[in-house]
């Protein structure tokens, strides 16, 4: 038996929003520790890694490990039926071929349940090694979304260049060239408005804009985003999810030919 209760189902709506542009379907692996998901986009250039710890839920029970293959378009249809303030309960029997989503209004006067068929997915699972990154940039997630959106007008690729002075995002194409430089913030009132850089070595890497833009669909989950970079390895874009855990996106770099 699997059962997870979430007093405000808006978190799950935001998670779904953050993954459905990159993935058509995904396996949600449920265990005593929580819910995890790892899946690559169709082109195998980017990967989504989601971790929601069981202690973040208002109630959580998972007697046996359960892998739920879910069509994300179907799940989106169901989650659209929930109000942001509804209490959500997800339930599945062991070895079930369906999962139930139950939404209760705050005053408990309206209760809806939606049963969704699970699908069998044969997804590749990648082992991601622990890495000490040369540069770790923390910045407001809204600012990162804005930069990705603005630069995607100029080219298909963004060059991210990090030194101890700051981080530079550049794009170039038919229209011309664009450069956005962010310095570390000296002092800010609110922690979430800060730009901080931890640098061991300067790094410059090139990435496809459209994936970065897809990652920014997670902006609503966290006021800050963390970019981790080392030479010639995938970029990690991480958004913390309150008391639950995180969503991380990995993106393979483009190599100049």
């Amino acid at each position: 038996m699997f059962e997870a209760r979430l007093v405000q189902c808006s978190m799950l709506k935001k998670v779904l929003e953050a993954i459905k542009e990159l993935l058509n379907e995904a396996t949600f692996d449920c265990s005593d520790a929580g819910i995890q998901l790892q899946a690559m986009d169709n082109s195998h250039v980017s990967l989504v890694s989601l971790n929601l710890r069981s202690d973040g839920f208002d109630k959580y029970r998972c007697d046996r490990n359960l892998s739920m293959g879910i069509n994300l378009a179907s799940m989106t249809k169901i989650m659209k039926c929930a109000g942001n303030d509804d209490v959500l309960t997800i339930k599945a029997q062991d070895n079930a071929d369906n999962v139930m989503f139950m939404f209760e209004s705050q005053n408990q006067e309206k209760v809806s349940d939606y049963d969704m068929k699970l699908i069998n997915l044969d997804q590749e699972h990648l082992g991601i090694p622990e890495t000490d990154y040369s540069c770790i940039i923390k910045m407001p997630s809204g600012e990162f979304a804005r930069i990705c959106r603005d630069l995607s007008q100029f080219g298909e690729s963004v060059v991210i260049s990090c030194t101890k002075e700051g981080v530079k995002f550049s794009a170039a194409g038919d229209v011309g060239a664009a450069n956005i430089k962010l310095a570390q913030t000296a002092n800010v009132d609110k922690e979430e408005e800060a730009v901080t850089i931890e640098m061991q070595e300067p790094v410059t890497l090139t990435f496809a804009c459209r994936y970065l833009n897809s990652f920014t669909k997670a902006t609503a989950l966290s006021p800050q985003v963390q970019l981790s970079m080392s030479a010639d390895v995938p970029l990690v874009v991480e958004y913390k999810i309150g008391d639950f855990g995180h969503i991380r996106y990995y993106l393979a770099p483009k190599i100049e030919e």
Binding site: M40, H125, L126, A252, P253, K254
Partner: peptide
């Protein structure tokens, strides 16, 4: 996409 690496170049399937 020219020059676009795939994740399999960096991470092994487990």
């Amino acid at each position: 996409m020219s020059g676009q690496k795939k994740l399999s170049s960096f991470f092994k399937t487990v």
